[in-house]
Amino acid sequence: MTTRPWSGGAEPEPDGPGLAGTPDVVGRPGPVPEGGAAHGPRRGALRRLVDVFVQNRLAVIGLGLVVLFLLFCFVGPLVYHTDQVSSNLAVSNEPPSAQHPLGTDSTGYDELGRLMYGGQASLEVGIAAALLASLVGTVYGAVAGYVGGVVDGALMRLVDGLLAVPALFVLLVLSTMFSPGVGIMVLLIASFSWLGAARLIRGESLALRVREYVQAVRAMGGGSTRAILRHIAPNAVGTVVVFATFTVADSILTLSFLGYLGLGVQPPQTDWGGMLSSATNYINSGYWWQLYPPGAAIVLVAIAFNFLGDALRDAFEVRLQSR
């Protein structure tokens, strides 16, 4: 959104260290952008990040919701003990009571406990898939943009082709084949969502490789790997972070869709989509406590990550075409 006053374009993008390849840079060698660049841009990025949260209420709401749900799903079960393994048909489909604040589902699981338990799968898959997709996409895009020429052409045509493959359709088929656990689900979802990152980072990489500091690396004898991993990827950090944030929301929605069709993580494990799926069997019975909580959870978490992504994009001024 171009209208927000704090997203003004006056502040130049950080170009990384003026003299690239200085040996005192402490950073992880991997392409994970945080901490990869030198102190200057890192502090700048950090300050802008803080500014986002000071000035953008939606970002605060988003971050608050994310933290709340992480606590709810991962710390909640430590406080609120429920049996999510053995079913108890004697107490199935009970409305909310003192003993079961959100009632029970059709197999007698406590619904509140189930919400925490299912949320673990939803959040784990969403976040892990987004991280994996960002990592793969960043490296792929950075290499394509940096190397250029025929290699770039070939790599990006493959991305074009894969982008035109209807992901949801193929995912549906794939998840009927495997009975997916959390790990497989992450791989399946990430296998389609890295394409966006590849495109975005390739664009950045094309622009960055002609910058003086990258040319300096090469002049000083630095290899392509070093230039890509230490200089190009870290300077595309804004794009990557924004992409990753949006992708968490998308991945959670995709997982919930597969879960709703009964093809997500398999019982006795569950995710929010799977919970909705079993709730729809009783849609005529008025068991609202089985329907609204997981639905609201999916929507709230997705909104939270979309708020965050939007605010971060304002901060980094990334031009994402698809949103």
């Binding site: 929605l253 709703y260 989509g273 729809t280 849609i283 639905g295 929507v299 997705a302 979309n306 708020f307």
Partner: peptide, 22 residues
């Protein structure tokens, strides 16, 4: 817009059925 964009289509459809049909 954020709310609808973040709502899975199937959940939206279910709510529509529940409210406007049932």
């Amino acid at each position: 817009g954020f709310v609808f964009y973040s709502t899975p289509v199937f959940f939206l459809s279910l709510m529509l059925v529940l409210w406007f049909s049932l």
